[in-house]
Nucleic acid binder design. Structure first.
Lengths: 214, 214
DNA sequence: GTCTATAGAATGATAGAC
DNA sequence: GTCTATCATTCTATAGAC
């Protein structure tokens, strides 16, 4: 009845748990992205994670709990992007960095963006408090920065709020609508070179559009 | 056993059918918009249409058939917008008209736009053929027009394809993400005046961005 | 920690009276 | 054309052996 390898066993189990949770979260993200919360089923997630459905419920008691975890991860990525828009005197530098970061995220984590889109379309049952607090505060602070640039004559007098919406929509479009983009690209995903052009194009049109270029 | 009012009755029934189908389609559009095809349930649609569930299946045999009808209606609206981008020598005129039309559609029919977004996110199981034929052909023809403007020196040498994506994403964002926009607007939907500013802003930044303004 | 079997609830669709 | 009742299926979640 002795447990000679208690520590080792515990460590090992913790590792197994960590890895399995990661696998499940990844699978869940892609299923939730494709079908939304209601449309997704735990069987599909389990299947995509290559585990029996019962194991999924062992790691994540309910579908809700699993979904919350997925959404939390996505929100952390969103925060990363938000941080890249720092208080900077140069609009060209600040906006270029921000747009680039958002385009990179759309490229690297399109599923997360889709889950976010689904959540907003559903009227944000889970993230409504984020929207009203963190997102609202962040937005107001950046609106102030953009307004300052306008007051200093560094950019044209555009409406800061709607400029932000344009940046969000343009960058997230490459994640949320990547299937449509791929179809119009002859059925193949955008190459790295094409994506770079898309990125440059977005930056160029927006910066020129607000008069930040000479 | 006579049927004295055959014609009247038939007309009456036809009218009832027409009205009920319209009510159901409207309810279905909003439920499919919010939950996607899998997430939507026929009970929810029936409830939102204020009819017993069995009646819904009387008018639309299957959930699939109902969904196809909804998607077809949306595609027709899309075609309307597409037509507004006509072959015109003046990029300012053509693009202003197109962006305005797309913004108007987002304002008047946000649910349709959301169903479309959900369908694309799901990798277009129902509209894939539209994407590969109608949408692809249309896109290629407009890319050619934009390229001509560039060759004539009327606008800057931007990539036409990515310019279109920017227009699509910016305009559709006001439909698909209207909940987020409303939240950031203090919980109230954009007023007509605010929407007009958003519209002007989009047109101004994009046209300036491609060098179509002086 | 893994997995088969299954309970209990919800869903798409239909039968059949009115 | 309307509506109640219901079947067959699928879904979330859990029990319990290993």
């Amino acid at each position: 009845m002795s447990k000679p390898e208690k520590v080792t066993k515990t460590t090992s189990k913790a590792k197994i748990r960590q890895e399995n949770e990661k696998t499940i979260l990844k699978a869940a993200e892609s299923v939730f992205a494709e079908y939304g919360f209601r449309g997704a089923t735990t069987s599909m997630i389990a299947e995509r994670a290559n585990i029996p459905k019962a194991n999924l419920h062992y790691y994540f008691p309910t579908k809700q709990a699993l979904y919350r975890q997925v959404v939390d991860n996505i929100f952390n990525i969103w925060l990363q992007a938000a941080d890249s828009f720092d208080d900077c005197d140069d609009p060209i530098e600040a906006l270029t960095r921000y747009i680039e970061k958002k385009m990179d995220i759309s490229r690297e984590n399109p599923m997360g963006s889709k889950v976010w889109a689904n959540e907003i379309i559903r009227r944000a049952p889970v993230i409504q408090d984020y929207l009203e607090t963190t997102l609202k505060d962040w937005t107001e602070s950046r609106v102030a920065i953009i307004q300052r640039w306008i007051d200093q004559g560094k950019i044209n007098p555009v409406d800061p709020q709607y400029l932000l919406y344009m940046i969000w929509s343009t960058t997230q479009h490459y994640a949320d609508f990547n299937h449509q983009i791929e179809t119009l690209n002859g059925g193949t995903p955008l190459s790295d070179a094409q994506y770079q052009i898309a990125k440059d194009n977005a930056i160029e049109i927006i910066l020129t559009g607000i008069g930040a270029r000479k």
